[in-house]
Amino acid sequence: MAYRWTNDLTHADVTPKAAFLNRRQLIAGTVGFGAIAAGLPAAAQEALEPNTLQEIQSYNNYYEFGTGKSDPAENAHQLEVSPWSVKVDGMVDNPGDYGLEDLLAGLTVEERIYRFRCVEAWSMVVPWNGIELADILNKVGVQAGAKYVAFETVVQPENMIGVQRRVLDFPYVEGLRLDEAMHPLTIMATGIYGEPISKQNGAPMRLVVPWKYGYKSIKSIVRITLTDVEPPTSWNVANPREYGFYSNVNPEVDHPRWSQATERKIGGGLFAARQDTLMLNGYADEVAGLYTEQPLNDYF
């Protein structure tokens, strides 16, 4: 059931910047400038231009390969990705150890250009290639009663310098509520810019949940577990005061040590201006409905 969500951002959208400016002038001419300022929730999209592949591949947080932003690019080549097997267990109809190709066979890979917002207040725009997670979950058969999906990153201590240094309690684990996992925006990415996803970006398969802080989008997944209890998540375990289970992008809830109201898009150089962070990273129209029963500012 791919294509349940239509990308509002395509390469065609961002290429002719001049055309965009013209359109803006046109609107300004007809309705007046005040009306635009008021009626442009999508205003942030004017800056939406995918980061270059070089930027996406050289500025990463992947603590298994070190805590510096360039450490993953330097060290991740040691990751062993083939063969790759994913254990699917818990409350599913077809549990087992799946070869990656078997798990994804027959499912549609789409391009999704998403904003990516790190909890450290920087952001990128990434053209992912991936499969809706719902398609994968439907393939393995989610049993009634399952409420959460838990994910686990591979641990290869001999290849991962950060694991040896015990920066976090590895393996890295993450989790989503089932409705979040089944949402059409949630994908398992296997590529970027039409190329197989690089190791520092989470090869061979990673989660992408664009309305949550980046650390929810767990990399190099080897295990998917359906469960009826809220699963532990690595940063929440490391520091529950600073990192909640939900971790939805929210400019109104600051990280205890820094503000989340603004962010800096990577790639703007030494004088890059900050931009306002959008509620749910700009995906409020699509996902706010998931949280009608929970005040977002309390369930952070």
Partner: peptide
């Protein structure tokens, strides 16, 4: 180096500087 994006400053120079 930060201004010209050399070496470690290539992608995000502000925090690095």
């Amino acid at each position: 180096k930060a201004l010209t994006g050399a070496g470690p400053y290539a992608v995000e120079p502000i925090n690095v500087l």
